[in-house]
Design a protein around this nucleic acid. Structure first.
Lengths: 346, 346
DNA sequence: CTGTTAGCGCATTCAG
DNA sequence: CTGAATGCGCTAACAG
């Protein structure tokens, strides 16, 4: 009933409508609307006036269909990830500057990554950015064969020629964290890993952690416990660390959220940070570093990661070869959650 | 060169391709892929096999063009807002259950709300959800006339018949916060408001804060200082609160992020929470409530807000009238950032 | 500068 | 169940 009338008075204006109203051809209107050359300033003005009057708005779907190019970059990301949110701003900025639109397809517990990607593919995005993808590598390679694809964050086990990866130097990240703690006098250091879902990243970091410990001669007192990338994971991981007989004096978590969860439970059991135990997070999201204690964390360079990912995606879809693996250095942000252990000679 | 070959081997498969390969008509393939009635189980299986083999994937743009309906809900939101992230999960869940796809268009400093909306409109979404919109009301009304629109969070000053609003009962929210603090013995209570950007919400909450204080006879010791919805806003707001002569014993912030910023600066100047000063946040995002101190906060019912918004959006586009204003109650989550003031009889 | 003619990929008749 | 035809709104040649 009125519902119909309310929404668009029957139908939204089309090129045709504008052309008729302005007394020109559709092509001309198309030229004007796109800002393409081929129209006098006079008609241009007149057409634009009608566009305004009719509230005309180009139909992106039709345009994409006709041009068989979308100038659209689709991004899948984990809705609840702080780090992913940090990547989106630079992604928008870089894409816009290059004349690309961005649409986001979120991953949630009920809306998994494959579905998120499918939505993007349905719109025939020119490029797809996967933030922290957990897709099987085979699926990722297939995706890369279909559309310009860049993964942000996760190292691929197999060399792939269809997908670019932009990620942080995890080895350096773990080394920075371990060296920081060691320099404060810690020896019994634990790593709460990323859990089973993020397989390669988890095992990479675990290994790099152990390597870093070994290099400092602390291999024997290194400890790895299963964790995850959520607050909840950090909370439960804490249970594996409070056994007084071999409690570590410092912990490096998989990400900042997990560090919070860990600290939350530490506080519940009466352990103080950094007095009783030091904590180092990972990612360095501004939202995660704040109050009331500033988190010590391995900061990924989110602006550079986001920017580079978009640049690579555009390069690939403009026919450049994928270059494979781009690794950016992290930095250590020292906050207030790390300090010398109570008894330096643990 | 190879770039072209790599991406789609010339062209993605179309209905036509599938039909030819399967030796049937396009219409039949269309019927099969849509799961529409009108195909025998046998041919259905055969067609689906070819679909799989060719990696055919329906083109959402063409489909939408042909049906002039998108079954697509577009959502704009603030990329850095924790509360908005909380809304996205229930939005996805509800939309999917109703058979709608969701695309997200983020707002960032460089990509403002109008552009975010324009992207959505370009795709002719059936409905648009605006999370915490800062659009002028006139613009919002115009949008509502164009497409089924639901705003989440902000009360509209003028009654509008084209847009639905789903929001939290701010009056109750402020009352809960004030009563909680008063019951702990606080009298000098300050409110750090939302700053100029969120005009109506800021002034609403300010007024409700003052009302709640008045009702308890604390109007004279109420204090409002300018703030905002970011960590940074909370940090700077703190400067207006530390004047020892009239320092409040408790503060209610505009949102959780701002509460963090505030606590951060409080800690910098040597004030302890809740020992020296109590802090109440707003929104109740799980990410915001965690470690190491659990934030006391006015929690919005994000699942209900998200679900209701989608339900309203769908109802409107199915020709129901907008109902105007839907107000949901918040709840107070008591954490560890509030306690009795040092000297109860301040 | 203009108007015409083709598609883009798909859904939807409608007659076989 | 099929195959052809029409249109969704737009761009891209092309001929005027």
């Amino acid at each position: 009933m009125r519902g119909n009338a309310r929404h668009g008075a029957g139908r939204k204006a089309t090129l045709e409508d504008v052309a008729r109203e302005a007394g020109v051809s559709r092509s001309l209107v198309s030229i004007v609307v796109r800002g393409a050359p081929g129209a006098s300033d006079e008609t241009r003005a007149r057409v634009l006036a009608v566009v305004e009057e009719l509230g005309y708005r180009p139909d992106a779907r039709a345009r994409m269909l006709a041009t068989s190019s979308s100038r659209l970059i689709g991004v899948t990301y984990l809705v609840e990830s702080l780090h992913h949110a940090d990547l989106l701003s630079p992604i928008y900025e870089t894409a816009e500057a290059a004349g690309y639109d961005v649409i986001l397809s979120g991953r949630t517990p009920q809306h998994d990554e494959q579905r998120a990607v499918n939505v993007l593919l349905g719109y025939r995005c020119d490029a797809v950015l996967l933030l922290g993808s957990e897709l099987p590598e085979a699926a990722m390679r297939r995706l890369g064969a279909l559309v310009s694809t860049v993964e942000v964050g996760r190292r691929l086990a197999l060399r792939t020629t269809t997908v670019d990866v932009v990620r942080t130097d995890e080895e350096l990240g773990l080394r920075l964290a371990v060296e920081h703690l060691a320099s404060l006098g810690h020896r019994r250091i634990a790593h709460v890993d990323g859990g089973p879902a993020l397989a390669t990243m988890t095992s990479d970091r675990r290994q790099f952690f152990l390597n870093a410990m070994d290099r400092l001669g602390l291999g024997a007192s290194a400890q790895v416990v299963p964790g995850g990338n959520t607050i909840e994971a950090g909370r439960t991981a804490c249970r594996d660390l409070t056994d007084p007989s071999r409690r570590p004096t410092a912990v490096i978590t998989f990400n900042d959220e997990s560090a919070w969860g860990l600290m939350r439970t530490l506080s519940d059991v009466g352990l103080r940070v950094p007095g009783d135990i030091s904590v180092v997070g990972y990612d360095g999201s501004p939202l995660a570093r704040i109050a009331p204690q500033e988190l010590t964390t391995v900061a990924q360079d989110a602006p550079a990661l986001g920017r580079t990912a978009v640049e690579r995606a555009i390069a690939i879809l403009e026919r450049a070869e994928p270059v494979g693996d781009i690794v950016l250095p992290p930095s250590l942000l020292v906050g207030e959650t790390t300090a010398a252990p109570r008894r330096a000679a643990a």
